[in-house]
Nucleic acid binder design. Structure first.
Lengths: 215, 215
DNA sequence: GTACTTTTCAAACATGTGTTTGAAATTGTG
DNA sequence: CACAATTTCAAACACATGTTTGAAAAGTAC
């Protein structure tokens, strides 16, 4: 039962390298040899510690998933303590602050997890099908409920749509997926600076949330 | 120089199958054998007609890129004929109508191209680095300019940000990237119906565009 | 019908993939 | 120290990958 410091360090190094490479190139385009080489460990170490490449991906995800969900909840609860019925702006702030804090604290893996989430939206991985809703189901419901109190003119269904658009916008923005870079040779927006993204995005999504019903 | 009907049919079948599979599984997770099997052609046919897998991807993209950019331009120009200074709503309508029309006309490949675009935002392919800005640079500038006339209170930089958020939201929405499906077991939003998506999305993005400056 | 080009095809190519093996090295324990 | 469990490692495994080959088939032109 000896979990030596060295062993912990090895699996952590693998997780760090894999996280970075999965974000950069995606799951399929990242080979085991690339990961283990970047981590400076033997190629067999991944299977030794995580069973398989799929197991590694799941482990990479789960290391950040719980802290981030707790961060999201904590910021929402803080907003609700300050104001029993927080405004759309305050709710979005809770969301973005969670993402920004995740990016700032090195222990949470920088911006990487948010980027990984954004990637996973368009490239879902079977290994997450079960664990993610279990972790984020309640968080999502809490945010949607808060949005419902802030915008009572919207139906339950439309609230879900708004939350859908909100998350999509936030994660894509923070992930730095620069749509314009595909469309224009030299886009003048700098989608890499999270603080700037948050400042630019805020008025957009808050106004979107407060918009009248589609009817 | 004989371009027989059979040859045209073969390359078209490859393009159709590849387009569908690239959208479904992404570039790296789609093998040549899967493509050629789905198209009912020999595996060597891809290299014969398109040189390589990368060449095929580029060809898949370029078949739809020009029609879609022309559709986007045509709808914007139509809006500007009806009203010299179209509102944000009318500009977004031009955008969404182009996407919807692309989805409805079978000759344009259904919704597939929009989905492919959305995928390519997070998983850029080197083969498109040059051709896309050449095709969509002017279209983007025209839309941004139109947005600038509709919202004169925004700076050039902030206009680019708004257009960035707008395109991101539109493409992700139409691509059916269901963020909520990763977060909740049974999301009640149906992100697969383009008409419904457009109706739900419209008030959100229009209000977002019209929002006051971030200052 | 013959000569030529274009297209198809099965087979093989070299290389990359995730994974397993079994022994060596290291670490923890009595 | 000696014994056992844990961790590392080079090598090999079986298989999948994109690509190429060279001959057979189909099509075109005179």
């Amino acid at each position: 039962m000896a979990e030596s410091a060295k062993a912990l360090e090895t699996s952590a190094r693998i997780l760090d390298a894999a996280e970075k490479l999965f974000v950069e190139h995606g799951f399929h385009a990242t080979s085991m040899r690339l990961i283990t080489q970047a981590a400076g460990v033997n190629i067999a170490a991944v299977n030794y510690y995580f069973g398989s490449k799929d197991g590694l991906f799941k482990a990479v995800f789960e290391r950040r998933a719980e802290p981030f969900s707790q961060l999201m909840l904590a910021h929402l609860e803080e907003a609700e303590r300050a104001n029993p019925v927080p405004s759309a702006l305050q709710i979005v702030h809770a969301f973005t602050n969670a993402a920004l804090q995740m990016g700032n604290e090195p222990d949470y893996g920088g911006q990487l997890f948010v980027k990984l989430l954004a990637r996973t939206f368009v490239e879902p991985h079977p290994a997450l099908k079960e664990s993610m809703p279990r972790r984020y189901g309640e968080v999502s419901r809490r945010y949607i409920a808060a949005l419902g109190r802030a915008m009572p003119h919207l139906s339950e269904l439309e609230l879900h749509w708004r939350f859908h658009f909100l998350s999509s916008a936030l994660f894509n923005a923070f992930a730095g997926n620069n749509v314009l870079r595909l469309f224009m040779a030299q886009p003048i927006v700098n989608a890499r600076d999270p603080e700037l993204v948050a400042r630019m995005l805020l008025p957009f999504v808050v106004a979107g949330l407060n918009a009248p019903s589609a009817g």
